[in-house]
């Protein structure tokens, strides 16, 4: 599903440039539940941005669903994001003046799906995350856990191939964190590839495979005990 070969990325800082990713190789197959671990500055967010087509790599190759990602203009990137990827962010990133239902329906709008259909699908997914009754509420009227569940419903609504979660529990307490992780596990069980970025060991331990990053290099890539047992 995701194949990365010798990936390099550097950011210009003044006259110098900061070399963030130093030749990563990573292969994630369809249906995997992977977490990227690393302290801040390890390059894990940069990796997620590149995988999420929000940023462009300098060197190396990146295949998404067998498609080589190169010379990507914003329009193509937008179409690919809409088609293949679902995002879950640490700060939820819901649009404040839209209701939960409208937030979930938004990716479908950009996919070009009709209004009625959109509302129906969005409501289905809200139901799936257990927030059907909150459909008409604004994000400001929801708790952190509820917000993240709305964000997950939004990430899933276009039936993407990969769900990318950037510190999905970073802003949540431990109880809600575990319920969010349960939800991601459920999604994974349905066959979706889930890609989580975190710096919390407990969260990473919930996933099937942990990739550890340090200073732009992969230092370990192993299956968790859970997966090994299963």
């Amino acid at each position: 599903m995701i194949e990365i070969k010798n990936l390099h990325k550097s950011y210009p800082i003044g006259k110098d440039s900061l070399h963030v990713l130093k030749g990563l190789n990573l292969h994630i197959k369809e249906g995997e539940f992977v977490s990227i671990m690393g302290s801040s500055g390890s390059g894990k967010s940069t990796l997620l941005n590149i995988v999420g087509l929000l940023d462009i790599h300098d060197e190396g190759e990146y295949f998404l669903d067998g498609q080589k990602i190169e010379n990507l203009d914003e329009k193509k990137a937008a179409i690919l994001r809409n088609k293949f990827l679902g995002f879950v962010f640490q700060s939820f990133n819901l649009i404040g003046y839209k209701t939960a239902l409208e937030n979930v329906a938004l990716p479908l709008y950009y996919k070009g799906i009709g209004r009625k259909e959109r509302q129906k699908i969005a409501l289905e997914y809200l139901d799936k995350v257990g927030l059907k009754d909150w459909a008409k509420h604004l994000p400001s009227e929801l708790s952190g856990g509820q917000k993240q569940r709305v964000a997950i419903a939004r990430a899933l609504v276009t039936k993407p191939k990969v769900v990318l979660a950037d510190e999905p529990t970073g802003a949540l307490d431990s109880t809600t964190s575990s319920s969010v992780m349960e939800m991601l596990k459920d999604i994974n069980r349905e066959g979706m590839t889930v890609f989580v970025i975190t710096h919390e060991e407990e969260i990473a331990a919930e996933t099937d495979r942990i990739v550890r990053l340090k200073d732009g290099v992969i230092i370990s890539d192993e299956l968790t005990h859970k997966k090994a047992k299963a």
């Binding site: 999420g52 929000l54 914003e74 329009k75 937008a78 179409i79 994001r81 809409n82 088609k83 995002f87 990133n93 819901l94 649009i95 404040g96 938004l106 990716p107 950009y110 996919k111 939004r154 276009t158």
Partner: peptide, 16 residues
């Protein structure tokens, strides 16, 4: 800016 970023992450094309 943020809202626009969200919309684009969700697949809004620049022209949209």
């Amino acid at each position: 800016t943020k809202e626009i970023g969200i919309r684009r992450a969700l697949g809004a094309k620049p022209w949209e």
